[in-house]
Amino acid sequence: MPKVKFDILESTCVPLPFENVDTDQIIPARFLSATSRQGFGDNLFRDWRYTKSGEKNTDFILNDPHFNGKVLVAGKNFGSGSSREHAVWAIFDYGFRAVVSSFFADIFMGNALNNGLLPIVISEVLLKKLLDLIQKDPGTKVKIDLEKQIFTILSTGDSVKFNINPYKKECLLKGLDDIDFLLSIKGLITSYENNKIQVK
């Protein structure tokens, strides 16, 4: 797993005001044949970003030059469906570092945290407000302070505390990796195995 540090992020946002954006939309299955983690950003939201004939779909938000930034703001139940981590790799590879929604699918949330992509849950009310603000002014900036767990819309001053598992927060702040941790407790794992076998 890549070791990515996350601390404070200040950025404009890209709005995606749809609910239930599933991982097949984020990265369609036909682009999952690669055997490395790199390059998936090219096909992020592939079937929304490009027309059937392969031209850029100018109606889609990622192709609108007014909207850019490192924060993706999306409708509820983002990342539902398949467990493909490729969805997170695609979002990260494209350049996003955080996704804001009112609700994430479980597996996507875990995958994001394992790859340095910060999922931030805010209320439906604030999400709607933020989506409206960005639509009106693509220059709308947000600030994410992971250490303090504070999410702020800079132009309005709306500021909320967001939740994150303290262990995962520590990992992200320090760029630590779950596998390093698990390897460090291998003795414990082995003794668990021995005890379990005795019980049987």
């Binding site: 981590e85 394992n114 779950d178 596998i179 698990l182």
Partner: peptide
């Protein structure tokens, strides 16, 4: 349950994963 590739790597490396209890 289904897991991501980082977790596949965890299981291959240690037969364990880190998981919050649902």
């Amino acid at each position: 349950f289904g897991i991501g590739t980082s977790e596949v790597e965890m299981v291959l490396a240690t037969q364990c994963i880190l998981q919050p209890k649902p």
